[in-house]
Amino acid sequence: MAYFTIFASRNDIKDIGGLVHEVFADGFKVTGGAPGEKEMTVHPKGWFKNNKITIRVASEDTDPDYFANNIPGMTGFYDRIPFADEDLKRRVMIQISVINTMLAIETEKEYGKDDLERFIKLAAKVDGIGFIPDGTLLDRDGRVIVYPDGSSDAADFSPRACTRKIRGEDRTTPEGAERKQRSLAYLKEKQVPYVEHLPELPPLSELKVRSREEIARRAAALLIVIQYACDVAQEGDLAESKAFVTGLLDRFGVKDALTEAEKDLLEQAEPEYQDAVNLVWQYEAYWALLWALGVVDSLDFPDHPCDSKAAIEAVSSCSGFDEFLERTALRRAEDMLDEADKIYRLHWACVNDRIRGREPAAGLNESVVMERRRALFWMIGYRDEAWDDISMDT
Rank of each mutant, 00 (worst) to 15 (best):
Y3W: 09
Y3K: 14
Y3F: 10
F4M: 02
F7M: 08
R10D: 09
N11Q: 09
N11T: 12
E22N: 12
D26P: 02
D26I: 06
G27C: 08
G27F: 11
V42P: 01
P44H: 10
F48T: 05
N51R: 09
N51A: 12
D63K: 12
A68H: 07
P72A: 06
P82N: 12
A84N: 14
D85M: 11
L88N: 10
L88Y: 10
K89S: 10
R90N: 15
V92M: 08
I96N: 03
S97K: 04
V98E: 08
N100S: 11
N100I: 10
I105C: 06
E106K: 11
Y111K: 11
D115P: 07
R118H: 04
F119E: 00
L122A: 02
A123F: 01
K125Q: 12
K125N: 10
D127I: 13
I129T: 05
G130V: 03
F131H: 12
P133K: 04
I145Y: 04
P148D: 10
S151F: 07
S151K: 13
S152G: 08
A154L: 12
F157L: 06
R160T: 15
C162F: 01
E169A: 14
E169S: 13
D170W: 02
T172V: 09
E178V: 02
S183A: 15
A185I: 01
Y186F: 15
E189L: 07
K190F: 06
P193W: 00
P199C: 05
L201R: 01
E206A: 11
L207R: 02
K208G: 07
E213D: 13
R218D: 01
A220D: 05
I226R: 03
Q227E: 15
V232D: 00
Q234P: 01
A239H: 07
A243R: 12
D250F: 00
F252K: 00
L258P: 02
K263R: 13
Y273F: 15
D275R: 13
N278P: 05
V280C: 15
Q282P: 09
L289S: 08
G294R: 07
V295Y: 01
S298P: 01
L299Q: 08
L299V: 15
H304T: 14
P305Y: 10
D307C: 12
S308N: 14
V315T: 11
S317N: 14
S319Y: 07
R331S: 04
R332D: 15
A333S: 14
D341V: 09
R345D: 08
A349T: 05
V351F: 05
R358K: 15
A361P: 07
A362Q: 03
A362E: 03
G363Y: 05
L364Y: 04
V368S: 02
A375D: 00
M379E: 01
W387A: 08
W387E: 01
